[in-house]
């Protein structure tokens, strides 16, 4: 517990700084109201819009924990949305649409995991294949059109509904976080993932079923990406195979890294990844809300800030930099 808290300090400090900046620069940020049975306000919006990346980051944490990576999650999101929308378009029941979409996403995850474990293809290459082809499959399903969903359909609840005052995407993301945390920490899955990422050879000697664990991690990733895709599609009540989930694999990886999990695998932090995802979303919201001398800051500024964040996080984790700093200190002292 203590160890995981220590891991979380930097991301939490970063988030706190961002929030303080917001509190000062745009006081409306923390203005949360209860309107028409739902909470509303910028802070709630951050969570709501950040939900897909939070879901992806949860799965990506596990994948990166084993020392892998999954570039295909954005494409998987697109497939989920496309399939669900297509089925709804064909008057399929909502439940069937959801189950079928999620099922296909799990299959996509197993495909990725299979390439990694059975064919021993490096994860970055293995998932690149579905990253490219998956979006094509999504477009194939939608025939290249944007399929709209009847805004009255109960399916849209996934993206727009409210439960207990909270937007449904937030509820889904937080419950998924709880479920994943429970699965990972109440079973041995978490320890196995950390063991494989920390020392695969030793894990094999200890009789851990390395292949199976790897495979299931990619399958879980597929499921979570599917959920994220459904939220995205339900939110705009349309499946846009071209843009759904675009770039989000990168945001998810970024969230995991910000959360203190190293790309090399081993110790991972689900909570850190959630904080990382919230930081990323807060950044974009902050930039949208911030005004500078009466002018609003262009949203593209977000990308530049992100670049700086990535570089800072990398440097903070760099052993090489730590070594250099220590050396300089020793010379001076």
């Amino acid at each position: 517990m203590r160890r995981s808290l220590r891991q979380l300090i930097w991301p939490l400090v970063a988030l706190a700084l961002l929030l303080v900046f917001n509190a000062v620069a745009s006081p409306s940020f923390f203005h949360v109201q209860f309107v028409n049975g739902r909470l509303s306000g910028a802070a709630i919006d951050v969570l709501n819009q950040g939900a897909p990346v939070m879901l992806l980051a949860l799965g990506m944490t596990l994948v990166i924990g084993t020392g892998g990576i999954d570039l295909s999650v954005g494409a998987v999101m697109a497939v989920a949305g496309a399939l669900a929308a297509k089925l709804l378009h064909l008057d399929a029941p909502v439940a069937l649409a959801i189950v079928a979409a999620l099922g296909v996403c799990v299959a996509a995850g197993i495909w990725n995991g299979g390439l990694v474990t059975v064919a021993s293809i490096p994860p970055i290459v293995a998932t690149l294949i579905f990253m490219v082809a998956g979006r094509g499959i999504a477009q194939l399903i939608t025939d290249g059109q944007i399929i709209t969903i009847n805004p009255g359909s109960s399916f849209t609840v996934i993206g727009r509904g409210v439960i207990g005052g909270l937007p449904v995407p937030v509820v889904i993301a937080l419950s998924a976080a709880l479920v994943i945390a429970a699965i990972v920490r109440l079973t041995s899955l978490g320890v196995f993932i950390e063991a494989i990422g920390g020392n695969e050879e030793a894990s094999r000697y200890a009789g851990i079923n390395v292949r199976w664990i790897r495979l299931s991690v990619y399958a879980i990733m597929g499921l979570l990406a599917g959920l994220a895709g459904l939220i995205d599609t339900a939110d705009i009540a349309a499946a846009d195979a071209n843009n759904s989930g675009l770039y989000l694999e990168l945001d998810a990886i970024l969230a995991v890294v910000i959360g203190g999990t190293a790309l090399t695998g081993g110790r991972f932090s689900l909570l850190g990844a959630l904080v990382g995802a919230i930081i990323i979303q807060t950044l974009s919201t902050t930039i949208l809300m911030t005004t500078f001398r009466g002018h609003s800051v262009p949203p593209e500024f977000n990308l530049v800030i992100k670049a700086i964040v990535v570089l800072m996080v990398c440097l903070l984790q760099s052993d090489e930099l730590r070594r250099m700093v220590l050396q300089v200190r020793r010379v001076q002292g």
Partner: peptide, 24 residues
């Protein structure tokens, strides 16, 4: 090279920076 960082992350930062600058 200097900080022994993964090219994936460094060029990802580069991608954000270049695209952001282009748009700005």
């Amino acid at each position: 090279q200097m900080f022994k960082l993964p090219p994936f992350l460094v060029t990802l930062a580069g991608m954000f920076l270049a695209r952001g600058t282009a748009l700005l």
